[in-house]
Design a protein around this nucleic acid. Structure first.
Length: 293
DNA sequence: ATTATTTGACCTGA
DNA sequence: TCAGGTCAAATAAT
């Protein structure tokens, strides 16, 4: 393995990475300011988000290039995380390729021993349940109710966490293309341009970013630093925690590798409990995540 | 009657 | 062959 020490280029890149992460932090601050502004502009937020992604992407590229098989140093946060999820949930490292092009992973707790995570703002129809090898609880499969009527490809998988039955691991696949029809069904509370999920994202980002060079390859993950494994704040009976994606968790999604985990980590704060989603299109058509509500 | 859930069978990728 | 994901008939709920 290459040693960075004694390698001026490597050290230079590390400095670059640090400076870029600082810039990312600054951009996040700006983004937050815009989000709190009464006349927040979605376009501006998009632009800032795109730049944040671009910067993190480049930094990850540097790290991956100079630590091709860097030994993983269990991040300082992972130790605290491990208490909650030493086996977050079975990461499908060798199963069929998914057709979805977008994925998000969240851990949701249901208050009062509810049967499942609360309403995430979309209407889902259960279409299957499977016992998962090594997992105490079965995994439930849901698809968007509007799949037939509108061809919405969004699906999600919900599985009760082994360690804490009050926690549910939810994996979202695919983007919602459905448009909620009037009242009922996929209802949406009236929202202005304030995006609560974006704020969650920002909180995680502001808490700090760590870039872990994953052993065994160019995969890297960005995990929120200092974010407690289970957010203490509740949200209408739901608590949601950013979910640092373990190394290799999503290696098979049809993405360009590195970014998938970043995407997973970043989008981990999106989702349930509200209906406006921070969606991310990993095809990077224009590299701009979509906020829509 | 319509819609949602359950559950065993089937399909697919590794 | 196995495990995870999906289908679809039966059943339940509204």
């Amino acid at each position: 393995m290459e040693s960075v020490e004694g390698n001026g280029t490597g050290r230079g890149n590390l400095q670059l990475v640090v400076s870029e992460l600082c810039r990312v932090q600054e951009l996040v601050r700006q983004l937050e300011l815009h989000l709190h502004a009464p006349d927040a502009s979605i376009d501006l937020c998009r632009a800032l988000t795109a730049e944040i992604f671009a910067l993190t992407d480049r930094s990850i590229g540097f790290v991956a290039a100079h630590f091709p098989d860097a030994p993983t140093t269990p991040s300082s946060t992972s130790s605290s995380l491990s208490g909650v999820s030493d086996q977050p949930f079975r990461t499908n490292t060798k199963k069929r390729k998914a057709t979805a092009r977008w994925t998000s992973q969240v851990r949701v707790s249901a208050a009062g021993g509810a049967e499942g995570p609360g309403d995430d703002g979309h209407s889902w129809r259960k279409y299957g349940q499977k016992d998962i090898l090594g997992a105490k609880h079965p995994r439930a499969y849901y698809r968007c109710t509007h799949r037939n009527s509108q061809g919405c490809p969004a699906t999600k998988q919900v599985q009760r966490a082994d360690q804490d039955p009050a926690l549910f691991d939810v994996v979202y696949h695919g983007q919602h293309t459905c448009r909620p029809t009037g009242s009922g069904g996929g209802r949406r509370p009236p929202t202005n341009q304030h995006n609560p999920h974006a704020e969650s994202l920002l909180q995680s980002l502001r808490a700090g970013l760590t870039v872990d060079a994953d052993h065994g390859g160019p995969n890297a993950s960005v995990s929120p630093l200092g974010a407690s494994p289970v957010a203490s704040g509740s949200n209408g009976g739901l608590t949601m925690s950013p979910y640092p994606v373990p190394a290799g968790a999503y290696t098979e999604w049809p993405l360009d590798g590195d970014l998938q985990e970043v995407v997973s980590a970043l989008t981990a704060v999106s989702a349930p409990s509200m209906d406006c989603l921070f969606e991310f299109d990993p095809t990077f058509g224009d590299g701009v995540p979509n906020f829509f509500m």
